[in-house]
Design a protein around this nucleic acid. Structure first.
Lengths: 225, 225
DNA sequence: TGATATTCTGACATCATGTCGGAATTTAAA
DNA sequence: TTTAAATTCCGACATGATGTCAGAATATCA
């Protein structure tokens, strides 16, 4: 029924325009795009199968040929974001070189992705509150990052770069810090400015792990200010 | 229909047992207790007016004499928790004396309250995802803490106790850190152990604000280890 | 063109919500 | 104790969202 405006610049689901592609895949992508459009301009709680399909020209029941329910659809979106976030945070998790520089790189990337995907992340988090399966997927998503961050902290502790403390609870806490600070800042419009958020996160991570004397070490400039 | 077990030790809503009290207030308290019982053993998404009232012996429609809807009820619970959390975090926000000691005190208290009220906090957060009004109340709740923390940080910056940086984004981030770390740790059963969580939070707050050399300064013992 | 497979739809059953008129019960006065 | 007023409670209803299914419409391809 109620058409919602298509918002200008948001990521689209690859429509594979040229090559031979089943109608089925095209319709599925259309529904996913409708979902993205919706999420960009409404809270997840207002999303219904009806409201979604209205903007596609198809009937409500057609939805169920492509997804089991709205949460199934949200899991698909989570998977896209998951890949992107994992890729961009790679430097600190697995890179070699000055860890503070790598950490800054990873945080930069993370802030960027979350700025672009904020409403999606927020919608996923909201959806996790209303569905067991998404809740589980969301928890696994966090789990990956908790494992990776714990491992990195322990490795750096082994090198004497980070003081000795129980790595995992700190890793978990810092990941929650990121996730919810970023969702809050960028999950609804108008989104906050990127820079103050980035600075706050970097300050907290670096002070906690490597010591505040390394703050502001953005590039691999080896001179300590 | 389905009875859910009453879990042993959780806060009860004051039933005002002895003095003359309207039947209305007693029933209202009974419903609130039923809600607490429910939340203690089920996720918020499974709570329905039906499931709630079944455990009270009253009809479903009786519920609406006492609350507009489930979210109205959740707002009542939020208010209780809000008061308790504000009280326990008072030391660092408004106290005088060594700020690191005060901060430790506040975090101790906060961890304690959240350990006891974890499932409620989690339910409120879940409810905020599904209702505009709770979302707003929840945001105001955070707002109070963001204001108080920003003010304290700025005050201590004025004293030269905390390095100069934009206080508010850091305050917001640290508050999200607490909220979601604590909800994650204590919001569902089995709850995590308190100590590792407390230590992780204290480490992060203190490293970020006052510098890691003050870690472990729990009492007003003025000797620095 | 016609046969087959795919995609789509309307109608249905289910379930939770919130409202309403009136029934049942409590309260307090006579 | 009786009775009338007020409070508390309940069944029944209308609404709106969900997910399913049989069959209609459409696309695909020989």
């Amino acid at each position: 029924m109620s058409e919602f405006k298509r918002s200008s610049s948001r990521p689209q689901v690859n429509p594979q325009p040229v090559p031979k592609i089943g109608k089925s895949e095209r319709t599925r992508a259309a529904i996913l795009n409708a979902a993205l459009d919706f999420i960009w301009s409404h809270p997840f709680r207002d999303m219904t199968v009806h409201s979604l399909m209205a903007s596609t020209g198809l009937s409500r029941s057609a939805f169920y040929q492509y997804f089991n329910d709205l949460h199934d659809l949200m899991e698909t979106l989570l998977e896209t974001v998951r890949v992107e976030v994992l890729a961009v945070t790679g430097p600190w998790f697995t890179g070699v070189g000055d860890p503070v520089v790598l950490l800054n790189e990873s945080l930069d990337g993370l802030v960027d992705v979350c700025y672009r995907q904020g409403p999606i992340l927020r919608a996923i988090d909201d959806a996790a509150a209303t569905d067991k399966r998404i809740e589980k997927a969301w928890a696994q998503f966090f789990g990956e990052f908790n494992d990776a961050a714990s491992a990195r902290i322990e490795a750096d502790q082994g090198q004497g770069l980070i003081p000795d403390f129980a790595a995992r609870p700190v890793a978990i806490a810092l990941n929650h810090l990121d996730a919810y600070t970023l969702i809050e800042a960028f999950g609804r419009r108008p989104r906050s400015k990127r820079e103050p958020v980035r600075e706050a996160l970097a300050r907290i991570w670096i002070s906690t792990l490597y010591g505040s004397e390394w703050l502001g070490k953005e590039s691999s400039n080896l001179v300590r200010t």
